[in-house]
Nucleic acid binder design. Structure first.
Length: 211
DNA sequence: AACAACGCCAACCGCAGAATG
DNA sequence: CCATTCTGCGGTTGGCGTTGT
């Protein structure tokens, strides 16, 4: 059995105080990141190494961007999630200044609802069965016919999915996805392949990740 | 004004994989 | 190789602020 990363005796838990933040920042400014297990003792903190790492990465790092997500960042998260799933660190890696924790929280608290409200299953980015894409303008009921045209839904598809087709001109104004990680033959030893397919019924593109 | 319900987000937990001896 | 330690990731929880009744 592995030892826990820290015993809970004598370590603080919960929210960080300003003094703790300052100690951690001062220490890392002088000694740099790394060797998290030894940092608490060296920095005079009653925290475990994991807690220090998390606090630094998610909050104290000077390049962390705080505040609300912009529209283009949200669009990018949706497109990357369709591509990569819940691989928050990879998604965050394409959003400068954003952390995996922040992206994950934003997804769970905002984007998941947004997609559901549009009739998109946030887990697989497919149109949900038995759920209307087109909420009635005269009723709050969710059970409404789904075969009528809908500008919002079409716009959504154009924005989040069609927009990620790298071969097309990006007319949506969204940042280029830089899809160099997609649609290429895996090198020896790599076990993932990304490719795009097009739904023959809807002509909508789907990005597939093979492992 | 008081309480309950809800939503957001910082932080914790457990696990897997990488690194090290 | 194998065992152990360390790091990073994703899921989950709990506290707090806000909104509704």
């Amino acid at each position: 059995m592995r030892n826990p990363c820290c015993d809970n005796k004598g370590t603080n838990k919960g929210a960080w105080s300003k003094e703790e933040d300052q100690k951690l920042m001062d220490y890392i400014r002088v000694h740099g990141e790394g060797c998290w297990r030894s940092i608490p003792k060296a920095a005079g903190l009653l925290r475990c190494g994991k807690s220090c790492r998390l606090r630094w990465i998610n909050y104290l790092r000077p390049d962390v961007k705080r505040g609300n997500f912009k529209e283009d960042e949200a669009d990018l998260i949706i497109r990357l999630h369709a591509l990569l799933g819940n691989r928050w660190s990879l998604i965050a890696g394409r959003l400068p200044g954003r952390t995996d924790n922040e992206v994950k929280n934003y997804w769970n608290s905002h984007l998941r609802k947004k997609l559901k409200s549009m009739g998109i299953d946030p887990d697989n980015h497919r149109v949900m069965q038995n759920v209307s894409l087109y909420p009635s303008r005269s009723s709050n009921s969710a059970a409404v016919s789904s075969d009528a045209g809908n500008d919002d839904f079409d716009h959504y598809w154009q924005l989040h999915y069609a927009g990620s087709r790298s071969s097309e001109a990006n007319s949506s104004g969204l940042p280029d996805l830089n899809l160099d990680l997609t649609i290429r033959i895996p090198r020896p030893g790599e076990n993932e392949l990304l490719m795009e397919s097009v739904d023959v019924n809807t002509a909508k593109p789907t990005l597939l990740l093979f492992r």
